[in-house]
Computed example of a mutant assay.
Amino acid sequence: MAEKVVFHIDEDRSETLLMALGNIENFLAALSAETPAVVVVANGNAVKLLRSHDAESYQRRIATLVQAGVRFLVCHNALKKLGIRPEELLTECAVIPAGIVEVVRLQGMGYAYVKP
Results as ranks from 00 to 15, higher is better:
R85V: 05
A55T: 11
Q107A: 05
F7E: 00
V103W: 00
A68L: 15
T91R: 08
A30F: 15
P116F: 15
D12A: 05
K4T: 12
Q67S: 14
L21N: 01
E15A: 08
R85I: 04
V38W: 02
C93P: 01
T91E: 02
A20M: 09
V95Q: 05
V95D: 01
L17M: 03
R85M: 05
S32I: 09
V104R: 03
V66G: 10
A30W: 12
I24C: 03
V70C: 10
V74H: 06
E15N: 03
V38H: 00
E56T: 15
V5G: 04
N23Y: 12
I62W: 11
G69K: 11
V40L: 11
I84Q: 00
L18G: 01
E56A: 13
G22N: 10
T64H: 12
G110I: 03
I100D: 00
L65H: 06
A29R: 15
L65S: 06
V38I: 12
F27T: 02
L21R: 05
V95F: 14
V40D: 02
S14H: 03
D12R: 07
E25A: 14
T16C: 01
D54P: 00
Q67Y: 08
R85P: 04
I100G: 01
A42G: 12
M19D: 01
G108T: 06
A55F: 14
L49G: 02
T91W: 04
L79R: 01
T35M: 06
E3Q: 13
V70L: 13
V5K: 08
Q67M: 06
A2F: 15
A112M: 08
M109K: 08
N26G: 10
G99Q: 05
A42N: 10
V6W: 07
E11R: 11
H8I: 05
Y58V: 06
K80W: 13
A37N: 10
T64L: 13
K115R: 14
K81E: 11
P116C: 08
T35D: 05
S14I: 09
E87H: 12
A112G: 10
A63I: 06
N23W: 10
L82H: 01
N23Q: 07
C75T: 13
A94C: 05
H53Q: 09
E25F: 13
Q59D: 02
M19E: 01
C93S: 02
N77R: 11
V41D: 00
A20F: 11
E87K: 12
